[in-house]
């Protein structure tokens, strides 16, 4: 007797639940990174599934750049309240105030890169030995080579050329004192999988993902939402457009998409037809061809 394979979304779901349970079993103080974006929302949904009917046995951790869409913060706090989960928040502003990093100035300034220092500090402060992130291998070429369980040395660094081999679904989370792991439970999901899954599971997401009238301006071919702390060039003018976020991150470097997609079905159709990747609107990736690889080596997610 043979059973045909189950639906690909259920197969991915099961794989992710397995990885999340391995984290809870193999580590003493894991945490799940939460950005308020769809990937971390899906990852948290999977964590709820992994431990049902018990509560999720680890806290969520938000690295707050201070440059957020206000809805993201409301969404985050509501989620923590609704599911009775501990939400740790660490602020990039604190890292700046402690003069551990210098804030970028001028046009295109972003706190995105500074998050790494805040994150590493948070990992040390809360003694986190495994930080789960919503990174996906289809996002970016350096992420295509990530493991599910990714070892970080005592400096939080990633050594892409010396990664532990990962076979079948046996995950080696052994480490020395002071080292930690980054774990990527949704490694094998694509952007489309995430959206189809949100639809299938009726997962609540911020309204920023749906079309709305936003005050936007164009820079280097990318539409950005106007925010109070963003410096603009003289020739840049804002206008009101029907737009939505395809990813939600630091507002200074998250491009918005001109779109009329008002439902999950619309979004799925739009993504199926699109010719630009999700991170095509991320100014942080455009800095150089190996921008992501370089940031990851230093401890970025």
């Amino acid at each position: 007797m043979s059973i045909q394979k189950i639906n690909h979304l259920k197969e991915l779901e099961s794989e992710s639940i397995y990885a999340i349970r391995e984290v809870a079993a193999q580590f003493e103080r894991p945490a799940m990174l939460f950005s308020g974006g769809k990937d971390s929302i899906v990852m948290f949904h999977l964590a709820r599934k992994a431990f049902y009917p018990a509560k999720v046995p680890f806290p969520l951790l938000h690295i707050d750049t201070g440059h957020n869409f206000s809805e993201t913060i409301r969404f985050r706090d509501n989620l923590a309240e609704k599911y009775k989960v501990t939400m740790l928040v660490e602020y990039v502003q604190d890292t700046i105030d402690q003069q551990k990093v210098t804030e970028e100035k001028g046009i295109g300034a972003s706190r995105n890169g500074l998050q790494t220092v805040t994150l590493l500090d948070a990992i040390e402060k809360h003694k986190i030995d495994a930080a789960m992130g919503g990174g996906r291998r289809d996002e970016e070429k350096a992420r295509a080579k990530e493991r599910f369980f990714s070892h970080r040395d005592a400096f939080g660094q990633w050594d892409p050329k010396n990664q532990r081999p990962e076979l079948w679904h046996i995950y080696n989370g052994k480490k020395k004192h002071g080292e930690h792991f980054r774990v990527f439970p949704i490694s094998n999901w694509t952007e489309m999988d995430v959206w189809q899954y949100i639809l299938m599971e009726s997962i609540e997401i911020p309204s920023l993902y749906f079309t709305q009238k936003l005050e936007v301006f164009q820079r280097d071919g990318v539409w950005l939402a106007k925010a109070p702390f963003m410096e603009m060039r003289e020739n840049e003018k804002t206008e009101i457009k029907e737009a939505r976020c395809r990813t939600i991150g630091d507002i200074t470097c998250t491009g918005v998409t001109l779109s009329k997609a008002a439902s999950l079905q619309d979004i799925i159709e739009e993504i199926a037809a699109t010719r630009v990747t999700e991170r095509g609107g991320r100014a942080d990736d455009k800095r150089s061809e190996s921008a992501m690889e370089d940031r990851k080596k230093n401890g970025y997610f």
Binding site: H8, Q163, E293
Partner: peptide, 28 residues
């Protein structure tokens, strides 16, 4: 398309396992 890491692009060879994703109407 598949050569992700800087060292690979420089040397023109694939060093590590890279995972790629695509879908057709039939399968993922």
């Amino acid at each position: 398309v598949t050569d992700g890491l800087r060292a690979e692009r420089e040397q023109g060879i694939t060093i590590d396992v890279a995972y790629r994703y695509f879908a057709t109407p039939q399968r993922k």
